[in-house]
């Protein structure tokens, strides 16, 4: 599955058109707490989140996230868009809520790309 496929499944809109849509997505992760994302997400996952501040992009950059999907049609502030543009991380907004998105992507075969913290 690549970024383009994810956009189709989540009925999303890409907010930084120069992003690479052929980048492969290896799994999914849904979270609103950034430390939680940093704690568990594996590289090359799509991050579903209800936050839209620039920290989402920073977190994604640190954790090698392949794409960000903002839930419930969130329109991020300009700083977030510019940062995503700068870092080349696809920033997508979807009209669906987090629950719906996790369900749809999981159903489409995108497995969890988080690893338990206390192994």
């Amino acid at each position: 599955m690549n970024v383009k496929d994810v956009i189709a499944i989540v009925n999303g809109k890409l907010l930084n058109p120069s992003a690479d849509l052929d980048r492969e997505i290896k799994g999914g992760c849904g979270a609103d707490l950034m430390s939680d994302v940093l704690a568990s997400i594996q590289p090359e996952a799509v991050l579903l989140t209800g936050l839209a501040n620039p920290q989402v992009v920073r977190t994604a950059q640190m954790a090698d996230v392949a794409a960000i999907v903002l839930v419930r049609g969130k329109q991020p502030p300009q700083e977030t868009r510019l940062l995503a543009e700068e870092e080349g991380i696809p920033l997508i907004t979807s009209p669906y809520g987090m629950f719906e998105l996790c369900g749809r992507l999981f159903q489409a075969g995108l497995k969890s790309l988080e690893s338990p913290v206390n192994e």
């Binding site: 979270a31 629950f99 996790c102 159903q107 969890s112 338990p116």
Partner: peptide, 19 residues
Amino acid sequence: TRMQSYETVGRLWELGVRL
């Protein structure tokens, strides 16, 4: 659960639980 939120919701979805 030890599962992550993403997988938990995915499983609930598979059981037919919807928004």
